[in-house]
Every structure is written in C-alpha cells, then in structure tokens.
C-alpha cells in the first residue's frame, strides 16, 4: 500500500487514472487498527487491479476534511480522480471487498 499525505495526495490519488482505494486511519483509532491487517491483505489479493493507499489523518486533518472525511475508519474509492464511493465507521472487510469488485 502506498502511504499518502498532504504532499502527495493530489499526485497519487486525484491525478491518478483508474481506481484508487484510500484507507483513512489514525493511530488512536482502535477500529481502524482492527480493520487494517484485512485491508492490507485485500490490497495484496487485488494487486494490479486497483491502486491501494493508506492515509494517516494525524497531521493531515485539513486534507481529510477537504475529502469530506470527518470520522474513522473511512475507506474511499476514487475513479480517475473523483470520489465514487465511500464506506465509513462500522466497516467490515466483506463490504470493502464487495465494493471493490463492484467498481473494478
């Protein structure tokens, strides 16, 4: 997974062609850390079929809010730079996988 932040978000996500999945998380968010190993596994399973990014919102709050993310965990999907879907708060990995399959 590619780590994105306020300096490279535009380049890696908003200017990217095709499907990009962004996992918004922070170290103080328990549910985020619960979900994370499964997200990383998913990224490996679908490697090459979408771009997978991880965004620690610590120090990137303005960026998160600019993406209308104000709650964690949030997993957002972008297609050719615009947000096409989003899952938030109570997320199961099955929902993430289903959404990914729907969009890819």
């Amino acid at each position: 997974m590619i780590e994105v932040n306020k300096t490279n978000f535009k380049e890696e996500v908003l200017k990217a062609k095709g499907l990009v999945m962004v996992d918004f998380w922070s170290p103080s968010c328990g549910p985020c850390k619960e979900l994370m190993p499964d997200v990383h596994q998913l990224a490996e399973k679908y490697a090459g079929q979408a771009k997978f990014c991880s965004l620690d919102t610590t120090g990137n709050k303005r960026l998160a809010i600019s993406q209308k993310v104000l709650g964690l965990p949030t997993i957002a999907f972008y297609k050719d730079g615009s947000k096409v879907a989003e899952l938030t708060t109570e997320i199961t990995i099955d929902e993430v996988e289903a959404k990914l399959n729907e969009l890819k």
């Binding site: 103080s28 328990g30 209308k68 993310v69 104000l70 709650g71 965990p73 989003e86 938030t88 708060t89």
Partner: peptide, 18 residues
C-alpha cells in the same frame, strides 16, 4: 452523516475537531 461529523467513538475522531 456517520463519518461526516456524527461519531460514536471519541478516541477515533476527537482530533478532527480541534
């Protein structure tokens, strides 16, 4: 507005609201 300002977890989301 879940994840858009509505929250059930202060430790998860508190620092958004500085």
């Amino acid at each position: 507005f879940r994840g858009k300002g509505v929250s059930y977890c202060a430790t998860c989301d508190a620092d958004f609201f500085e």
